[in-house]
Amino acid sequence: MPSRHEEERSEEGSVGDGLPDLGDSIDALTFEQILEMDDDEDEREFSKSIVFGFFEQAEETFVKMDKALEDRDLAELSSLGHFLKGSSATLGLTKVKESCEKIQHYGQQKDEAGTTDEPDEDLCLSRIKAILVVVKEEYAEVEKVLKKFYATPAAS
């Protein structure tokens, strides 16, 4: 039985025919929408600039998150989580987006889903510390996949 991504890629008119398996950390349809904006499928200058700009942005944000965690600044952590959530959602980086959303919620002193108040600051900070480890691993995984994608010339 084909995976969800294989089914999505087999749709008529999809640019996904030449895409490698992006794994379950990247939503193929969302990422393909970025690729569709490229003028040249061999160079992929537009999408590459967006993706590599995101890498730079994410790494700077992780440094800021580490500092905010050290400073016990929940509001800043929430804001940074919200910021990175949006950037990662644009590229279809689903796992990174979901983890950043959790950071945003914990920073607002809410539960994981953002529905219930959590007055214990220490608990929120410890949850953010744990999810920050996870999101950095998820980021490293998508960075590796995308750098490999852009290092490989598109098949003609």
Rank of each mutant, 00 (worst) to 15 (best):
K110G: 01
K102G: 02
E41V: 15
L74G: 03
Q57K: 14
Q108A: 05
F83P: 05
F54L: 04
F52N: 09
C100D: 06
M37Y: 07
K97F: 07
S25L: 15
F31W: 09
A113N: 09
L84K: 05
A113G: 06
E59M: 05
D73H: 06
T30V: 15
A75E: 14
D120S: 03
V51E: 05
S78L: 05
K48C: 12
S47Y: 08
D21R: 12
T90E: 14
L69E: 03
F46C: 07
L93D: 09
A75F: 04
E101A: 13
F55R: 02
D42E: 14
F55E: 07
D24C: 10
E60D: 13
Q57N: 14
Q104W: 03
A75L: 10
S25Q: 15
G114F: 01
G92A: 05
E59N: 07
G23I: 05
S88N: 00
D39P: 01
D38G: 10
K97M: 13
I26E: 07
T90S: 15
D27T: 12
P119V: 01
D42L: 15
T30M: 15
T61D: 04
L93G: 06
F52R: 08
T116H: 09
S14C: 11
E118C: 13
A68L: 02
F55H: 08
I34K: 14
S99M: 11
K48S: 12
D17H: 15
L80Y: 03
A68K: 00
D39A: 13
D111L: 00
F55L: 00
L22M: 12
D40Y: 00
L19D: 14
V96F: 11
C100K: 02
A113I: 03
S88E: 05
C124H: 01
R72F: 01
A89Q: 11
D24W: 12
K97S: 10
F62Q: 08
G16H: 11
K102F: 11
T30Q: 15
D42P: 01
G13Q: 09
G86F: 00
D17F: 14
A89N: 08
L93E: 00
Q33G: 12
F52M: 11
G107N: 04
S87V: 07
K85A: 01
D122L: 02
G13M: 07
V96I: 12
I34V: 15
Q109G: 06
G81D: 01
D24I: 09
Q104H: 10
G92Q: 02
E36A: 15
K102M: 10
E36I: 11
P119A: 00
D111R: 01
Y106E: 04
A75H: 08
K110R: 04
